[in-house]
Design a protein around this nucleic acid. Structure first.
Lengths: 194, 194
DNA sequence: GTCTATAAAGCGATAGAC
DNA sequence: GTCTATCGCTTTATAGAC
């Protein structure tokens, strides 16, 4: 691990990995110092609030990344189908084709959800709404777009669970391919019908 | 909490709830003694191997319940469509319509998966295969049944994540309804085509 | 079978030197 | 900004009385 002077932003990704792999409770300071190469002194210099502040900062960084690279493009890109295809590509890259887990999902499942309730809820709610927006632009009926978007977001989370449970990242890859068909396969059809 | 002499089998469900709510690392002996009403002496009398043995016993109990009430009926019931409908009903009841989380899924996501690797993998693999079996009996093409079963199992897990993240159990209920349509809605069609 | 007392280790967090 | 030393508390686990 690099032993030079570091910045808070540099260690956030490393912190993220530790929380992803061990969960909030399992992510001990010992794990964190080992992964980051920083002593407790440095850690508490950057995060006076301790572990809770570290986790909140990681969540905020993840949130910003998804807002910038996933949610905003979903809302802004005029071609809904292209927007959805881009989302699936970025999601595949972010989750390393099923080899990396979703920290927000991990937090959601345990009782630490309550500590980060707002951040967890907002992440998934905005993902669902942004995807529903894009779906409507593909010509999907407004009243089904919401449920279809929810179905897709939840499938991504479930695929991460199953891929890890079965120790088979291909589950995730297959799921993304199926989602593309489910979300876009009928888009041309819908559009043509109008 | 009942203060009389207890049996190992009586405390397993309570242990399950603690592990579900806090995860393996977060489930401290303090939480466990509080929930079960048993002192450490009793706990170590029943589970000499400590927390790890407790978690393994809970996983085994869950496995047995699903084998008996979900997997076996899926494989045995001649009417595939009825078998799948039964599964969805029992899953809805087990997960309390989205208010209860899947312990095996929770374990799968963190690094404790490695400790219970075999049990976690077997649970999901058998669920997927049993459901694929039932799907084939509805007339679904053998080569798509496997992927459709995988999609359903993973949707259930994802719905539990999202329901908790959004603090909205209805996400789970909606997902089960959608799965019934997706798995069986076209069953009559498939059967009729033959 | 259940309890309390206790051991030994690990935890998150702080202080203060550099 | 980084480190080491240390505090006080919680952790898992054991021992032994009842």
């Amino acid at each position: 691990m690099a032993r030079t002077v570091s910045e808070r932003a540099d260690i956030l990704p490393l912190l993220g990995e530790v929380f992803r792999e061990h969960g909030f409770e399992g992510a001990s300071l010992a794990h964190i110092t080992a992964r980051t190469g920083l002593g407790k002194g440095s850690l508490y210099h950057f995060f006076p609030g301790g572990k809770e502040e570290m986790a909140a900062a990681v969540l905020a960084e993840i949130d910003l990344w998804f807002e910038t690279n996933v949610f905003a493009p979903l809302r802004a890109q005029e071609d809904g189908a292209a927007a959805i295809r881009d989302m699936l590509g970025r999601v595949d890259a972010y989750f390393r084709s099923g080899r990396r887990v979703c920290l927000v999902g991990v937090f959601a499942l345990s009782e630490v959800r309550d500590r980060f309730c707002g951040q967890v809820l907002s992440y998934f709610a905005r993902w669902r709404e942004a995807l529903a927006d894009a779906l409507r632009r593909t010509g999907r009926a407004p009243d089904t777009a919401g449920e279809d978007a929810e179905d897709a977001v939840l499938a991504i989370q479930g695929a991460l669970v199953l891929a890890r449970a079965l120790d088979d990242p291909a589950v995730f890859t297959r799921t993304l391919a199926r989602l593309e068909r489910r979300l876009l396969g009928m888009a041309a059809l819908h559009a043509a019908q109008q």
